[in-house]
């Protein structure tokens, strides 16, 4: 199976029903996409498929054929996506485990809507759990990043 991940082509020989999560983590050693629940309940494995957020734990590898897969490792070329900068500015992460998924969900939101309201942020982010309780800082970081997103443009390596 041939897949395009963060702009690079990968040949893999795995069962077609293997979720992208395990293909990324076990076969390609791209471990930024995290395993949290395996049921699409926590959002820790959020990636983009053709720019749309999906849960990698529920997406079979075969569903990505011919589509652009973007993971946290490909969110920006120089670790400088406006959200990544805002996350650092607001010192968002605590343990950090859920943050890849939070960032990927937030990036998809800002692509559609660079100036989301509180309730729009809630709607887009409610599928992403954080046990450490970084929600208020995530919300603040999304708001402060929003204004820079248009200028930065679509900087995914997709």
């Amino acid at each position: 199976m041939q897949l395009i991940i963060n702009g690079a082509t990968h040949e893999t020989d795995v069962d077609e029903d293997m979720p992208l999560l395990w293909l990324l983590r076990d076969e390609l050693q791209m471990t930024g996409t995290k395993f949290g629940c395996g049921r699409g309940l926590c959002g820790a494995c959020t990636i983009h498929l053709d720019g749309r957020p999906v849960r990698a734990c529920l997406t079979p590898a075969s569903a990505a054929r011919g589509k652009a897969v973007t993971t946290i490792e490909g969110l920006s070329k120089n670790s400088d996506h406006p959200l990544q900068q805002a996350w650092i500015k607001h010192n968002v992460p605590q343990c950090g485990y859920c943050q890849s998924g939070q960032l990927m969900s937030a990036a998809a939101l800002l692509q559609d809507n660079p100036n989301p309201t509180d309730s729009e942020i809630d709607r887009a982010m409610t599928g992403n759990l954080c046990r450490c309780g970084t929600y208020p800082r995530i919300k603040a970081a999304i708001k402060s990043a929003g204004q820079f997103v248009n200028a930065a443009g679509g900087n995914e390596d997709a």
Binding site: F35, V92, Y97
Partner: peptide, 14 residues
């Protein structure tokens, strides 16, 4: 650890 956490580079037990 924040810069590594926002790029997926931070390594956990899993």
């Amino acid at each position: 650890d924040t810069p590594a956490m926002v790029t997926g580079a931070a390594d956990f037990g899993q």
